[in-house]
Computed example of a mutant assay.
Amino acid sequence: MLATTTYPATAADPNLPDVLIVHGLYGSARNWGVIARHLADRRAVHVVDMRNHGQSPRASSQSYPDMAGDLAEVIMSLGAPMDVLGHSMGGKAAMQLALTLPELVRKLVVADIAPVAYTHDQTQYIAAMRALDLNGLTSRSEADRRLSATVDDPSLRAFFLQSLDLKAQPPAWRLNLDVLEDQMPLIVGWPGTTGRFEGHTLFLTGALSHYVKPEYRDTIRSLFPKSHFAKLPGAGHWLHAERPREFEQAVQVFLNA
């Protein structure tokens, strides 16, 4: 089963289900720790490492049916249904879950992604991580300095470096880079899943992002007829990292309504 970190509710409300948070490509549960603690005010929050990420098992496939199956296993082991929040790749996996096993999901939050195939490629970051000189590396600040040679954006570097295990000898990435590279067409794609999820679904996007275009809305509504749309001003694709407090507030209002 996927490695899962649980944040117990500070003041549990028996009328609210637990929340499951699903990170995006190259992420991990560690990226969501602060947000998970804040969302755990009235219900438990569970954050997973997806397959081939973090502490979760390695596998040869990164398909959305397989990732949705992983999430289903977690929910059924901890108690269904749950409210599910997924970002980017995690958002697609969460949509796949909701469309194929809707009884496991009460409400769905999809952060800055749509149920469509994209044409962009993310393998340039795999090349950057592979190129990082790990010899004699003992500090994250030094890793950041070295990674800056291939990744200009400091926020992206900080995000990637949360998946670097500096305690390993030698240091190593907590990512199955070979499989992620091989499966990239599936990750940026969409399996063409049909069906309808009748639960309320929030498509929460960054106002500066272009991942969820207006022309995708007909497709979204055909699969998720109770769709709601909201944008976070000043945020791009990594909206939860760029505007964390505003992100939390939007999610809280939607899930608790």
Rank of each mutant, 00 (worst) to 15 (best):
H237K: 09
A257I: 15
D70V: 03
S61I: 05
A250M: 13
R37C: 07
P115A: 12
K167I: 07
D153S: 14
R145V: 10
D165R: 03
K226A: 12
Q162C: 13
L20G: 06
G33M: 10
G27I: 12
L78C: 08
I113W: 03
A94Q: 02
G27L: 06
E181G: 08
S61Y: 10
S163T: 06
D66A: 10
D182W: 05
L104M: 07
K92M: 04
L85E: 00
P171A: 11
V251D: 02
Y211D: 04
G91M: 01
S77T: 14
A117I: 03
S61H: 13
A68N: 03
F224V: 08
L25K: 02
S88D: 05
V212R: 00
T194K: 14
F197Q: 02
G33K: 07
T6K: 08
P14M: 13
F254L: 15
G33E: 14
S222Y: 10
I220E: 00
A36C: 09
Q169V: 10
L186S: 11
A127F: 04
A94S: 15
A59R: 05
P102W: 05
S139Y: 12
T4D: 13
T201W: 01
P14V: 14
M50D: 00
V84F: 01
H228D: 15
D83E: 08
K213D: 15
A40Q: 05
H46E: 05
V48I: 12
L232E: 03
G206N: 09
N31P: 07
D152G: 10
A257W: 11
A98T: 05
V212K: 01
L255N: 05
Y125P: 02
L20C: 13
P171H: 04
S227Y: 08
T100Q: 08
M50G: 04
L104W: 03
A98I: 09
L85V: 14
L223D: 13
A12L: 15
H240G: 06
I187L: 08
R42G: 10
D152S: 14
A250H: 11
A59N: 06
F254S: 09
A128W: 03
N176K: 03
F159W: 09
Q96K: 02
H200M: 09
K167F: 11
F254D: 12
R196T: 07
G234F: 06
P14T: 15
V251N: 07
S209L: 08
T123A: 08
Q124V: 10
